[in-house]
Design a protein around this nucleic acid. Structure first.
Lengths: 285, 285
DNA sequence: CATATAATGTAATTTAATTACAGAATGCGT
DNA sequence: ACGCATTCTGTAATTAAATTACATTATATG
C-alpha cells in the first residue's frame, strides 16, 4: 500500500498530535516532500520528535525515508483526470485543468484506438497515388497540419477547407487515391457528402471521426477517437489534440514503412529550412 | 524530464568522476534512494562533494532533493516517458510511444509554463482591439486553430500564413492591437521581422516560442514551452501539441475573464452550427 | 613548458534528524 | 474521586548527514 493511502486508513490509530501531522501532510503533500522535519513540525504545531514518531508508525525508517515513500506515492497517484474548468478558477487552476484533461483525453484515446485499423490506414496511405485531407471548422487546422506532415514525404497531397474545392477534388478522385475526412462529431453534413462522393469515385476514404456517426458510415476505414470533451467551454479542445496525435501516428507509421533510406529524405526536407532560420550556433554565442 | 532520463541524456556533460556516480546510480537506482551520500560516494569511489555536485548539475537542490526526484522517477514505473520511435517498431509500439511521448511533453509543458505570463497574456488579449495570429510551416496550423477559437469570441481576429500578408498586417497594426507569433524554434527569420515591425507600430507582441530565441527577443511577452522533441522523426509533433494546448488555455482564460454572460454567446456560436450538422437524436434512433 | 582553468578531494562547518529523558495528559481500578 | 500506571508530547542533547570553503591535483591552451 502506498504511504498516502496508509495515512488515510490508519488515521484512527494516530494520537491527537499525530493526526495534526497527518492533516497537514494530506493537505499539502507536495510541500511536505520539500520541507524539513522542523518546518513540518511547525506547520502542524507539534514538536519534531512527534513528526518522527509519526513516520515510524507508518513503518518507515524515519523522516527522510518517509519523504521518499511519500514522493513515490505522489508520483504514482493523481494520474490525469478530466477536471472541468469552473467559473471561479484562477489562471493556475484553469491552466492545470486544461493540461490535465488533455492528457486524460490522450490516455483514453490511446486505450481506445484500434491498432489494427491504424495499421491498415498506414497500409492504404503508403500505397496511395494521391492523399487528400479534408476538414471543416476546427478540424480544418488538423487537416492543414496533416498536409504539412505528409507533404514532407514527397507524395501528392492536397488539403482543402473550402467545401466547393473539396467537392471538386472528391469528384476527381479515382482508384488508388486516399481521402482523409476529419470531423470530431462526424455529423457535419457537407463532409459526409464529400466522403460519399469520394467513395463513389473509387477512392479509399479514411475517417478520423466518432465511431458510429453518419460520417463513419460513409468511410472505408474509421479511426475513431471517443475522447471526453468539456462541453461547457463550447470549443473542441481535447478532441482536436487527439486527432493531431493520430495524424502524428499515421505519419510515423508511413515513414517507418518506407524504411531508412526514406528517412534521409526527411532530413533533407528539414535541412532545407535552414536558410530561412537564424543559425542556432550563431545565436548561442 | 524525469531525473533518470536526465542522467542518461546529459551523460556527456558529466566529468569523469560524475560519470562514475551516474553509472552507480543507473546500476542500482533502488539502492541509491536508501543510501547516504557517504555510502554512494564510496560505491562510486569518489568524494562526497563530487556526489553533491553531481546532484546540483541535475538541477536539484542537493543530495536529499535528488533522492526525492529519483524516487519519483522510479515510482512512475515509466508511465509517460519520452520514448523514441525506432526503426523496428510495429504499429502497436509506435502508437504507444507517440501517445506517451506526447503526454510526457504536455506534462513537461505544464510544469514549465509560467502562470504569470499566461495571466498577463490573457489580460492583453481581453483588452485587444484586434488580434492577429501568425505562424509559418507547421505553426501555421496552430495559428489557424487559434483563429478558429478566438473568432467565436466575436472580437476582430485575423490569421495569415503568407508572409506578405503578415507583413502588411503588421505594418498596419497600432496601439491596442495584439499580434501572436507562433514558432517552435523561434528562429524563423521572417517571423522575427514581423514581430519587430508589429512592435515598431506599437502593437503588443506575444510569442509562443522557445525561451531565449531571436523571436523571443522581439516580443513584449513570451510564452515559452521547452518540450523535448524526438528529432529523429524530423517533424514537429509534441511541440505543436503543446502549443495548441497553450492556445486552449489562453482561450479559456479569455472566456473566464469575460464572465458568465459572455459564455452564453459561445453557446450561440456553437448552436449556429446545428444547421450544418445531422441531428444527434435523429441519428441515434 | 608555463600558465590558466577546471576537476576533485580534505577538512571544517552547518544543518537536519534522532535519541534520551522529563513532564504532562489520559485512562483505569479501587 | 483519587492515585497509579500508561501513554503521549515536548525540550534539550546527541548523533548523523550534508554542504561549504579551501587546498590540491589534473587537464587544457597558447
Amino acid at each position: 500500500m502506498n504511504v498516502l493511502e496508509k495515512i488515510v486508513t490508519s488515521v484512527n490509530n494516530f494520537s491527537k498530535s499525530e493526526r495534526k501531522v497527518a492533516d497537514v501532510i494530506l493537505a499539502n503533500p507536495q510541500t511536505t516532500i520539500h520541507s524539513s522535519i522542523a518546518a513540518l513540525a511547525k506547520m502542524a504545531d507539534v514538536s519534531e520528535p512527534t513528526v518522527n514518531r509519526f513516520c515510524r508508525r507508518l513503518d518507515t525508517k524515519g523522516f527522510p525515508d518517509f519523504k521518499l515513500h511519500l514522493a513515490q506515492s505522489l508520483a504514482n497517484g493523481t494520474p490525469y483526470v478530466n477536471r472541468h474548468v469552473e467559473e471561479e478558477d484562477g489562471p493556475e487552476a484553469y491552466t492545470a485543468k486544461i493540461f490535465e484533461s488533455t492528457m486524460a483525453a490522450l490516455d483514453t484515446a490511446r486505450q481506445r484506438v484500434d491498432i489494427n485499423t491504424v495499421n491498415r490506414a498506414v497500409d492504404v496511405l503508403t500505397q496511395a497515388k494521391k492523399i487528400s485531407f479534408f476538414g471543416l471548422g476546427a478540424s480544418a487546422s488538423v487537416a492543414h497540419d496533416a498536409q504539412n506532415k505528409f507533404f514532407r514525404f514527397n507524395v501528392p497531397v492536397v488539403c482543402f477547407d473550402d467545401i466547393v474545392m473539396q467537392r471538386m477534388s472528391a469528384i476527381n478522385s479515382a482508384e488508388g487515391d486516399v481521402v482523409v475526412c476529419i470531423s470530431h462529431t462526424g455529423r457535419t453534413k457537407n463532409l459526409c457528402d464529400i466522403a460519399a462522393i469520394a467513395r463513389e469515385n473509387d477512392a479509399t476514404v479514411i475517417g478520423i471521426t466518432a465511431y458510429d456517426s453518419p460520417l463513419a458510415k460513409e468511410c472505408t476505414l474509421v479511426l475513431s477517437l471517443d475522447v471526453p470533451e468539456d462541453t461547457d467551454m463550447y470549443m473542441p479542445m481535447a478532441s482536436r489534440v487527439a486527432q493531431l496525435v493520430l495524424i502524428d501516428i499515421l505519419a510515423t507509421g508511413f515513414t517507418l514503412r518506407r524504411g531508412t533510406k526514406f528517412r534521409e529524405n526527411l532530413k533533407k526536407v528539414k535541412d532545407s529550412l535552414r536558410g530561412s532560420r537564424f543559425d542556432k550556433k550563431d545565436f548561442n554565442n
